[in-house]
């Protein structure tokens, strides 16, 4: 998890195109400038970044389901809940299920877990748009490879 670079997912653990499900893993860093402000003497992973973790996790699935032809942009978050304090050093898993694929948008139900206990949840709606340029898409594909997104599987 590189908070300052907004690279919140360390790797994709499982991605099932047919089941429309994905699971990711990440470890909250011990130190971050974010913790200097949130909060001094009591560092917590902000809820807004937990939302981003969920959105990034399911976003990889949305992209994979579209064979990386479109970029999912976060458009709406509903029913977000944060059930526990998330601390530096915590190891987290995030899960996402694409529940609806509309024309130009997708919806996913997402949740975060720590030691199998739910820490957060939300419904995330993405607006799908073409990649704005080839360089951006190439960067996304490189990041997908770093995260162990099973690109071979997706090319079937």
């Amino acid at each position: 998890m590189h908070l300052e670079y907004f690279q919140l997912i360390d790797r994709i653990v499982a991605l099932d195109l047919e089941a429309r499900s994905v699971r990711s893993f990440c470890r909250v860093p011990e130190r971050s400038t974010i913790f200097e402000g949130h909060f001094p003497g009591y560092p917590l992973l902000p809820g807004v970044l937990q939302i981003e973790c969920m959105a990034q996790t399911a976003g990889w699935l949305v992209m994979a389901r579209g064979a990386f032809t479109a970029m999912p942009f976060l458009a709406n978050v509903k029913d977000a809940k944060f059930r526990a304090a998330v601390l530096p050093g915590d190891e987290l898993e995030f899960e996402g299920n694409v529940t609806h694929e509309g024309s130009g948008f997708s919806v996913a139900e997402c949740r975060g877990l720590r030691q199998d206990r739910k820490i957060c949840e939300a419904q995330v709606l993405y607006r799908l748009a073409p990649f704005p340029n080839p360089e951006f898409r190439s960067a996304i594909m490189r990041r997908a490879a770093e995260l162990d997104v099973a690109l071979k599987e997706l090319s079937k």
């Binding site: 609806h100 509309g102 024309s103 130009g104 709606l125």
Partner: peptide, 11 residues
């Protein structure tokens, strides 16, 4: 954006 929500609900 609101129309996306409406489309989702209509779908």
């Amino acid at each position: 954006l609101d129309f996306l929500d409406i489309a989702f609900a209509i779908d």
